[in-house]
Write a protein that binds this DNA or RNA. Sequence first.
DNA 1: GCAAGGTC
Length: 828
Amino acid sequence: MELIITEKNNAARRIADILSDGGASTERDAGVNVYEWGGKRCVGLSGHVVGVDFPAEYSDWRDVEPAELVHADVTKTATKEDIVNVLQRLAERADDVVIATDYDREGELIGKEAYELVREVNEDAPIKRVRFSSITENEVKTAFADPDDLDFDLAAAGEARQTIDLVWGAALTRFLSLSARQTGGDFISVGRVQTPTLKLIVDKEREIEAFEPDDYWELFADLAKDDAEFEAQYFYLDDEGNEAERVWNEADAEAAFDVLRDAADAVVESVRRRTRTDDPPAPFNTTQYIRAASSLGYAAGRAMSIAEDLYTAGYITYPRTDNTVYPDDLDPAELLDTLSANPHFGDDAETLLDADDLTPTEGDEETTDHPPIHPTADMPDRGDLSEDEWEVYELVVRRFFATLADPAEWAHLRVVADCEGLQLKANGRRLLDEGYHAVYPYFGTDENHVPAVEEGDVLDVSDARIEAKQTQPPRRYGQSRLIETMEDMGIGTKATRHNTIEKLYDRGYIEDDPPKPTRLAMAVVEAAEEYADMLVSEEMTAELEADMAAIASGEKTYDEVTQESRDLLDRIFDSLGESREEVGTHLQESLKADKTLGPCPDCGETLLIRKSRQGSFFVGCDGYPDCEFTLPLPDTGEPVVLDSECDDHGLHEVKMLAGRNTFVHGCPLCRAEEADDADEPVLGPCPECGHEHDGELRIKTLRNGNRLVGCSRYPDCEYSLPLPRHGDIEITDESCDEHGLPKLVVHDEGDDPWELGCPICNFAEYQERQQNRGLEALDGVGAKTAEKLEAAGVSSVGDLADVEPEALADEVDGVSADRVREWQAKAD
DNA sequence: GCAAGGTC
């Protein structure tokens, strides 16, 4: 039996399909697909199925000096045991083995990991390696006809990266965490990729903090030829002879303004007409896709997760790619022809097909592992996708269209006029031929109309304006620009850059969007700059890349490279040793600064944002347990301390981060006082804590306008029931037999009053109705998908809540576990 | 409880 091993299940399925001419059958073993045909078996891994780590005796942070990790052994253990077991069971019976992992460095390493797992159970079978740059019939068959050997040097290069990343990351992370006495779950993490990324954000913040604005003035005049009026701007030539619009001196600006205001006409000095070609964009690689999705409002992580879902469902190609050149085997006309059947963008596909030339644009990077992101021939129906998924899918389709479309043509018109010795200019822009913009409406095509004037024309000056302005601090990096910068610097990979940014959020280093660094982040970068400069610069990656190239070409060995790196880290620990206290204190102070609101009104100590045992946030006093002062915080989102302070209490205001529902809560003390004043109507004792703590149920209106029945002891008791958002709520004299609460009636404008009844009964009925809804009630479940789910025994929203996402995803084609989880969240 | 890199 021949065993073929690929990097992922998807590749296994397609390769089996090609090599068996469609005749392969699928067998599931412990959740792993094995494809079989004529004496062959093909199985997909899930990327790395083994991971590097230190031996168990190093796992207790308190018992091991971080510096000891520098020279600790690094071992490999199985991380995907089911896959390893299936692989080894198959390998035992294999007469020969072919490794068909991705054609790149990490793929070679994953291949070597498979090689070693096979050798553990089978010493003799020959193990070959095939390489192909895209999974097409021609390439795959050619590669399998003439297999090669594994490149152990290339794999060793990858192993050196693994070891160096682990040793540096783990040793320094432990050192910083222990020095700041972070004994709980929150550790202070650093690494070769995340720390230089964080430094980018921190450096920008330093520029912003150091920025001092300058005043300047700009002047404008309205010019007219006949009835056509247009705006022109004053400019002059600066000391270096460059055109400048900003006037840095108020007296000069006012003097120029006086001239323009009093002037009656201006004479056209020069007119320049030009035609500009505006080329269509290159095909999508991961970074450019994230950038485009970000202009539609999707954060990087969200954009990637939607793309992964669309890929798993088969609608677009693999979303993790650096490639910006379509491979030869992609036939644009054929794909356009398929897409032309779509009711939403079929017409655009037809128009493109009518053109005589269908040469796609190309980017700079041509890699061999995956094509640029483009739609596949398998088209979803509108109802099969959620709104977000459809928006992203259409983006990918339209980008594909754009790469095949004609350039746009712009007419530029530049007019310079003299007004009493002052120069005025106007730049007009008109779209002559919309070209690719017709099929790709995501770029702006604003025009600026300047009438056709000729040299020597005398124009009326109808109005003059002076605008006082200030220079602005640099802008923070947005997530997509951060990812582009990381790509330029060569840090991270297409598959990990967005994860790195998520990690910075999770670790409490950045907040908000665009991300702003916390005090902790500033302190971590400062510590790294002072003691481990290598770690915060992109140089570490650059040197590692050079070393990896040397290992791959046989000039250096794994041992030499990792030893050099360990020696360097040793020296860093030597200098860190004496400064442990100092570094720790600074980190601790910064941690606290991120959570500090201001003085406690009861005892004068400091109020801090804390987290309750139930996981909800509240404001507590640093003097606890001597001072028990607390204030509630909203239960939606994560609190962030803003720079702005409340005038009444001197406390920092709080913002609640909750994605699209993010809002500014303000001063928690003001909010608490308002709530006390609000005179919330009382319904009765809280069923959860009424007899024990005298909590009572009240009707509350939240800051975001939502209303609910909640316990007066919130946040200590979190019992709550929903109420409708609109209408006046009347509390009747009639009460519920079962729960003893008064029945409620809602009076909404225009509508007849309706009886909501007992809020507990009402909520129970509501939940039951929700459970019994059909699946198509959920956003993102179309008729096609609902049918597939029903076949798997899931026919109502309630059924969906009970399923295991992975199990359902395995059972139903084209449905990912993430997508199931998304539905479950919506069903809640 | 450490990193970064695959993949889901």
